[in-house]
Amino acid sequence: MDKPYLKFEQVGMSFRRGEMATEVLRDVSLTIARGEFVSLIGHSGCGKSTLLNILGGLLRSTAGEVFLEGQVVDAPGPERAIVFQNHSLLPWLTVYGNVAIAVDKVFGGSGPSGKSKAERHDWVMHNLELVQMAQAKDKRPHEVSGGMKQRVGIARALAMQPKVLLMDEPFGALDALTRAHLQDSVMEIHARLGNTVMMITHDVDEAVLLSDRVVMMTNGPSATIGEVLEIDLARPRRRLELAVDPEYARCRAAVLEFLYARHRVPARAAA
């Protein structure tokens, strides 16, 4: 396969407000292989969410293109399922209903990917089991904790069988312990299913722990990819062992060095 699985080709993005045009992204080029776990890290305002939304199809880039398996990405779709930062569960549906609404739509048709009603039910339950939420299937989102909501958000995205799974700071709103639990769950699922994942984070440890590559963004405006770091750590990774691993420490230091020595937040933005 010489064609790259997922490719950003000189992607740029400008927002226009009246006469003023703000360039958020410039010349972002990146290729991602099938099954790869890539993190995007950068200071807030560096356009990493914009980049993810372009891949998700929620935003249309003003320059360049994104290709997934050779196809131009120009609209949202289930093959690029998104795990939203604030879980985005529909509060009037149960945990089960929130996954089922996606499964019924994506696999409800009579096409080649169509599943029968029983198969769809099994598939919803299978994905809830994957994130250990099967026992809470009849609860409503407001009845479960923040971490559990995000588990359901992940189950909903996984249930669409996406070609690439997009995660927009998926653990940002969670406390440290819950976050560690979920990171372990995501690593386990990634090991089992081999999904291609693109994750936004602002947590250096999270990026190094989970990723095959960490993509570091320069500060905006006109942000672009500053550096790409290969994380050469064997999987499965265990956070306790990694804490004393010299390679882990080196990667962590490299990301920290990039973020805080070479691309510090400009003083005005930090204020």
């Binding site: 929620l58 609209a75 949202p76 289930p78 998104i82 529909l90 009037w92 609404i101 994506v106």
Partner: peptide, 25 residues
């Protein structure tokens, strides 16, 4: 906007958005 994004990602039709997102929300 989150609900609209969810609807866009799973590609609900206009009618489905109306019944399953707009009205309940």
């Amino acid at each position: 906007q989150d609900y609209r994004n969810v609807a866009a990602v799973i590609r609900l039709s206009w009618w489905e958005v109306f019944w399953k997102i707009t009205l309940p929300a």
